[in-house]
Amino acid sequence: MSTIFDKLSLYMQYPFVRYAVIVGILIALCSSLFGVILVLKRFSFIGDGLSHVAFGAMAIATSLKVTNNMPLILTITVVCAILLLRTGQNTKIKGDATLAMFSVGALAIGYLLMNVFSTSTNLSGDVCTVLFGSTSILTLTKIEVWLSAVLSVFVVSIFILFYNKIFAVTFDESFAQATGTKAGIYNLLIAVIVAVIVVLAMNLVGSLLVSALVIFPPLSAMRIFKSFKSVTICSAIVSVFCALTGMLISILGGTPVGSTIVAVDIVAYVLASVIGNILRRRCAL
């Protein structure tokens, strides 16, 4: 056990490991907070769709040989998120069909662009890294670290500042609208924030596993707690704990970061389900 701690303290001396841990925790916190809203609004799959869009955007950035690709990916993903949530309600192609169209379309175009324009000698490796994260979080540049940190703080601030309005829009949009809340604007805000989270989370778990980071912690929290506030707090704690544990396990054991974090999230969900069942049985007695 002491060997593990020695190794861990040794690894923590490296700045890139410290950056990875900080950014990882912040991303996990953001994704869990807005994950609760997505799950409650039945938009769980939107994270997956947007992550595919982000993959397409990354392919465009790679083709254009953009050094710092995050702003470009962020812009494209935010625009797609707005299009998905705003125009999806008023067009002939409804809800999940629009999402599926964006999702697979972006994935296909992204892979096509990378194949045609990429100058990399290891194309399959590049695609694999983007899709599954691999060690992306450990290879962030200083600019990416700061951008991730600032965006994470921005997302958490938005959630804290607009907590009541977001709560109202999440549970009863019609009622919120009737009471004077501009539900459309808040939905737009949620769409933009979700896009930001997806782009951030891509660095941590890869674009294919982003949904897991967004939905597992809220689902785990919902197995134990019932109120919005307690679910949000529990979700944030579970998400941060799982992300940290997953990252430490992968750094120590040499396993892929993204899939290790998701595996820990699954374990947490199973544990939460067991605890939830026990609590329900006790309450029933």
């Binding site: 690894y11 890139f16 490991v17 060690t135 290879t139 750094i251 120590l252 040499g254």
Partner: peptide
């Protein structure tokens, strides 16, 4: 070092 750390370290060396 573990494989993740080695990969990240080599990345740092290059970049």
């Amino acid at each position: 070092m573990s494989s993740d750390m080695v990969y990240a370290m080599v990345y740092q060396m290059v970049f």
